[in-house]
């Protein structure tokens, strides 16, 4: 039987969907437990810091093991890796050194960044107390805390960074250029400064032999697939190109020959299970055994 009440109800429903368009009831409530796993941010006032502590002394050992190869034993920075310490009173210089001590406004940023993104080859692998310890040691490298210092969730926000007042909120537009159309400057005043040649890759349009991307190319004769080469670059290169954590360098014939003397299966086994400073599969347990072995082959090939 025809039911008018049902029809009216249906019409009301249709109309109401438009009326409450601001809420769609999509997604699910996020529980505190779910949020807690991802809620890692820390603010200058200490909000977000988990309970824990770490000493400068503990930090030094961890730093030497996990940080020094890129950032240098004293935070001086290897190659183009970031310098962490020094640089006091250089911010007005021709070549300013922006380090934790000379530039960073808050200690919380240091804790937060080490926790979220360091060490570079194994982000979010440090335990809470290890983050406190390494943070304490980097502060000590910058002479902001003494060697006996123990950093905790309670004292981090009280640390005053030297450049705390060195920032202000963007005030641009800060220049005004009048839109002049004719005789805007004296032709005699124009002095042309040319580019320093030879420091940017130009071979793709000048055929001048300046090929800045050569470092990405595989060496001649390598049989590894692009996937293997790419995985090597993402997962292994960090240590094996540089000798980080005493890793045998790719291309170091003597170092690899020594290992080859124990037989290839022994090398595979070490790569899969870990040895000395190297964790199982270099910390990349998501890689298949076959991939790890192929990468070993690739590294051996480059080190013949």
């Amino acid at each position: 039987m025809f039911n008018w009440r049902k029809v009216t109800g249906w019409l009301l429903l249709v109309l109401s969907t438009a009326a409450i368009a601001e809420q769609y009831n999509l997604g699910k409530p996020a529980s505190e437990k779910v949020i807690a796993g991802w809620d890692i941010d820390v603010r200058p006032d200490g909000l977000g810091l988990p309970k824990g502590s770490g000493s400068v002394e503990e930090g030094e050992a961890l730093y030497d093991q996990k940080c020094a190869n890129c950032h240098g034993s004293f935070g001086e920075g290897e190659g183009r890796w970031p310098k962490l310490a020094g640089g006091e009173d250089t911010l007005r210089d021709e070549r300013p050194e922006k380090t934790v001590g000379s530039y960073w406004p808050y200690a919380s940023t240091l804790w937060d960044y080490i926790h979220r993104a360091m060490p570079f080859n194994a982000p979010q692998s440090l335990a809470t107390d290890e983050v406190y310890a390494i943070t304490a040691y980097v502060l000590n490298l910058n002479e902001l805390v003494d060697g006996e210092f123990v950093l905790t969730q309670d004292n981090l926000a009280t640390i005053e960074m030297p450049n705390k007042n060195g920032f202000y909120v963007d005030n641009r537009p800060d220049v005004a250029n009048p839109r002049c159309m004719k005789n805007c400057k004296d032709p005699e005043s124009i002095k042309v400064i040319a580019t320093i040649a030879g420091i940017t890759p130009t071979d793709h349009f000048k055929h001048d032999g300046n090929d800045g991307v050569a470092y990405q190319e595989s060496a001649v004769g390598v049989t590894a697939t692009p996937e293997v080469v790419k995985t090597y670059q993402n997962a292994c290169k960090m240590c094996h190109d540089t000798g980080l954590n005493d890793a045998p360098k790719t291309g170091d014939v003597a170092a690899w020959q020594k290992r080859l003397n124990q037989g290839k299966p022994a090398i595979y086994n070490n790569a899969l299970k870990g040895i000395n400073g190297m964790p199982a599969k270099g910390g990349r347990t998501d890689l298949s055994d076959e991939m790890v072995k192929s990468i070993v082959d690739y590294m051996l090939e480059l080190s013949e």
């Binding site: 911010l91 007005r92 300013p96 922006k98 934790v100 530039y103 960073w104 406004p105 808050y106 940023t109 960044y113 060195g166 920032f167 202000y168 909120v169 963007d170 005030n171 641009r172």
Partner: peptide, 14 residues
């Protein structure tokens, strides 16, 4: 803070 801030001649940064 460390990055994506603009260091000015007076040593302060935007």
């Amino acid at each position: 803070t460390s990055k994506y801030t603009d260091l000015m001649p007076d040593g302060r940064a935007q």
